[in-house]
């Protein structure tokens, strides 16, 4: 195989569970083909080989939670032609952004030994809160087909087919019966961006919003309906306050059901 010029791919990690970058390794059928098209230049989870930047495409996982992260992400931005964030942590701060709603000092008053060893911020924030981002891929974790689609689109110079509409549309396309209407299940589908592959409704449970808010989420109207279905204000509050708690629309809605 001739060593033609392949775009350089880097995968970076900030505060996260590693699930989104693992998604890349979970592309079992496509991984080897992918490496024929891109040159993996930095991907610690998969290789100890490290190549210097600049990189054509950087995938960034995780949220910004330490002062060091802030410096590091700026460096990544500088080194990357295309910066794509992957997952709820990188696009909205992730589950660890729940600290944003609390006084972190309250967390600490509990027993622990040597706080001085640790350097952390009071907030967990999205990558785009710190540097410009070219594309944000949603999900907790991202969907591997969407991840491949974004890489594929970047390689082929086309627009990625990543819808920003509601999960409901995906449910209907797949013929999944609406849990909320047919069973009264609390579901965030109408305000959540599609893309997971209709997972929760397909498993007879309500969508819990791991793809974050859809393009024009009417969270207030949905919250009203959830209350009408018998959820309490606390339930609604908690429902919006999970993996994308710090995404604007979800944050505001959860705040109004304190």
């Amino acid at each position: 195989m001739s060593e033609r010029k392949r775009p350089k791919l880097a995968v970076w990690k900030f505060s996260s569970c590693d699930g989104c970058q693992l998604t890349l390794l979970d592309c079992e059928d496509e991984l080897l083909a992918l490496t024929e098209e891109v040159r993996i230049s930095y991907f610690l989870e998969a290789t100890r080989k490290v190549e210097k930047g600049p990189y054509d495409v950087s995938l960034v996982e995780g949220s910004i939670t330490t002062p060091h992260d802030i410096k590091a992400i700026r460096e990544v931005r500088k080194q990357s032609k295309l910066l794509i964030t992957i997952g709820a942590c990188a696009t909205a701060g992730g589950i660890q952004a729940l600290r944003n709603f609390k006084n972190v000092k309250d967390f600490i008053r509990t027993v622990y030994a040597h706080p001085e060893y640790i350097d952390t911020l009071t907030t967990s924030t999205a990558i785009s809160d710190h540097v410009p981002v070219d594309f944000e891929l949603r999900g907790c974790p991202v969907n591997k087909y969407q991840m491949l689609e974004v890489l594929n689109a970047a390689l082929n110079g086309r627009k990625p087919n990543i819808p920003r509409h509601s999960q409901c549309i995906e449910c209907k396309e797949s013929g999944t019966v609406c849990r909320m209407v047919a069973a009264g299940t609390a579901c965030l589908g109408p305000v959540t961006q599609a893309g997971c592959g209709t997972l929760c409704p397909g498993k007879d449970r309500g969508c819990y919003g791991c793809f974050g808010p859809m393009e024009t989420p009417n969270t207030a109207a949905l919250a009203g309906q959830l209350l009408a279905l018998g959820q309490t204000g606390r339930d609604v509050h908690r429902l919006f306050r999970t993996y994308n708690a710090n995404a604007d629309a979800f944050r505001k809605e959860s705040d109004s059901h304190g």
């Binding site: 594929n152 086309r158 509409h165 509601s166 409901c168 209907k172 109408p190 305000v191 024009t216």
Partner: peptide
């Protein structure tokens, strides 16, 4: 909710989009 459910379940709604894949 602009969720689009009504259009999806409507038996006459016919709108489609196209996706190019490679």
């Amino acid at each position: 909710l602009t969720c689009g459910n009504c259009t999806m379940v409507c038996p006459t709604c016919f709108c489609t989009t196209v996706e190019d894949v490679t």
